[in-house]
Write a protein that binds this DNA or RNA. Sequence first.
RNA 1: GGACAGCUGGCCGAGUGGUCGAAGGCGCUCGCCUGGAACGCGAGUAUAGGGCAACCUAUCGAGGGUUCGAAUCCCUCGUUGUCCA
Length: 418
Amino acid sequence: MIDLKLLQKDFESVNKKLMRKGVDATLIEELKLKNEELKKAKSSYETLQALQNSMSKEFGIYKREGKDISELKARVDANKIVINEALDIQRNTQEELEKIAMSIPNMPDDDVPDGADEEDNIELKKVLTPREFTFTPKEHWELAEQNGWIDFERGVKLATSRFSVQFGMGARLERALINFMLDFNRSRGFDEVSVPALVNRSALEGTGQLPKFEDDLYKMQNQELFLIPTAEVPVTNIYQDEILREDELPKKMTAYTSCFRKEAGAAGRDTRGMIRQHQFHKVELVAITHPNESEKVFKEMVECASDILTALELPHRLVNLCTGDLGFGAAHTTDIEVWLPGQNTYREISSISNTREFQARRAKIRFKDGKKNSFVHTLNGSSLAVGRTLVAIMENNQNEDGTIDIPEVLKPYLGISI
RNA sequence: GGACAGCUGGCCGAGUGGUCGAAGGCGCUCGCCUGGAACGCGAGUAUAGGGCAACCUAUCGAGGGUUCGAAUCCCUCGUUGUCCA
């Protein structure tokens, strides 16, 4: 959530920043006016309430002393009618304000490049050089089918489109990748956690998926529970509504979960293969840090994810997202894109974001900052999307006959002697 | 699924309609005491919002209700424990 005090104090700069992210200027104006309206409504309600409280105290004294209360009661009753009106106004205004405030995205950092979409993202660096093929590399679904690793048709039979079944080495590689990634992250100081795959509304509001993106979430029918679209949601919200000690920070966590997305806005995109599935595996990094430390941890997270790809010998590049491609909660994001020779392009395999105070303010995650409480910074990033890593291994490590070489670092996880 | 009992500050725990933002204890901070410490003594010690401030408002699991007034009474929900199915 955006800082309403900052909005009030420095409207111009907040407005400018949000405009870069394409937020409607009238909405920001409206939020500011609503906030002022709420302050007025609160103050008039509180004044009336203070009067009511003092009259009520008097009431007690009157009774104890046996005085006649009829005149006082008349005053108090009259005041009560006015209070109720003021309270109604206050509540409505509050509700309207929250509705607007919760739907406004985070402000991008000043050094985030301007841009409309992914075309305007800025490449930061390339890691490893894509290999030269002496034959035309196949796309992963062809290889998957040929090796009997992934069955897309049976996935559709069991559920619906965008689901798949992994067999044999395909299934084992997934499991090996998950274990390898978790171990790798742990070696970089991220503690492993295991979290629910179903979460409630307030968790999703905390990290920013709700209220705006409900259409992309799977919701239980008879309960206010949703399947998680990313482990970011349960892991970040572990500390929802808590005040942490400063010496507990940073909290660096890693979790493996399945993720579930309706992909409502992605009709027609990546319909073939396992690039965009409704259910996919992901190993996630989440950090909760002191505000001074978030950029340092951010770099560690990017490095961690990139180093996993390097360990798997997968060429990739780091990309700085432009304002138009930035997610709802992010102040800035670095994407990691892995080289897919079959598609002859780099594709996103990880997205690492610093949300700064944005999620912390929504989820009320604070720390004891000396005498007072301050909001922490929260960060999240994939390390990595498992299905896409499997795709990258298949496409990069394919031989002319369609067989696929297993990366050395995964062999111990597959019981293959090196 | 049913019955009963809880849910109070960092922790434990008292509090069944007004003087309760909440006794007491523990912990923590500061000071005194001491060569230094323990003990002892004294002071302080929740969060959010508003105000230059005095101070005001809200919060005793959450929400709603009764009442001039609710931690306390009523309702709904959540949650923990125990027992039954």
